[in-house]
């Protein structure tokens, strides 16, 4: 076990701006190409890419902006998504498939189907979400 601990993770960090749809997907795409070079399997890359992309989109659509961080060690990737607000009022509801608070104009763009958080949870091996109104949301996804 101790040997495992000694591995220094590769850390990639991205700032995600509120409302910047043009750059949305950049973090997941860059993380994906690194994982391919490291030799991660296709199916694992796929789950990580989907989870990261959903997290990224949530930051763009719902938050005031935040960061995506990927910590990579062999066969395990941890994705941390954190933002500075506004926070999720009802987490239980937010985790339900199909529930969305996305405004009409976002839905017209093809987003806001209410599958973001459930997809992220489904792709993760471990999933944790902490949210506080006025402070922000922190999501930790361990995918292996």
């Amino acid at each position: 076990m101790k040997k495992e601990e000694r591995i220094k993770p590769i850390v990639m960090r991205f700032v995600v701006e509120q409302g910047n749809f043009q750059l949305a997907g950049e973090a997941s795409s860059r993380i994906k190409s690194r994982l391919l070079q490291l030799g991660f399997s296709g199916s694992l890359i796929r789950r990580i890419a989907i989870a990261t992309y959903e997290a990224e989109m949530n930051l763009v659509i719902h938050s005031y902006g935040g960061t995506i961080e990927a910590q990579i060690i062999p066969e395990i990737v941890t994705i941390l998504a954190s933002d500075t607000g506004p926070g999720i009022p009802d987490l239980e509801k937010a985790m339900q498939e199909g529930f969305s608070t996305a405004p009409e104009e976002i839905r017209e763009m093809g987003f806001g189907a209410g599958m973001g958080l459930p997809n992220m949870r489904n792709c993760s091996t471990e999933f944790e979400i902490v949210s506080e109104i006025g402070k922000g949301t922190n999501i930790t996804m361990v995918i292996s």
Partner: peptide, 15 residues
């Protein structure tokens, strides 16, 4: 495209 068959070595190479 992988840097090394051993993922740990691949990580070192990436660093």
């Amino acid at each position: 495209l992988r840097l090394d068959d051993d993922m740990k070595v691949a990580m070192q190479k990436m660093e």
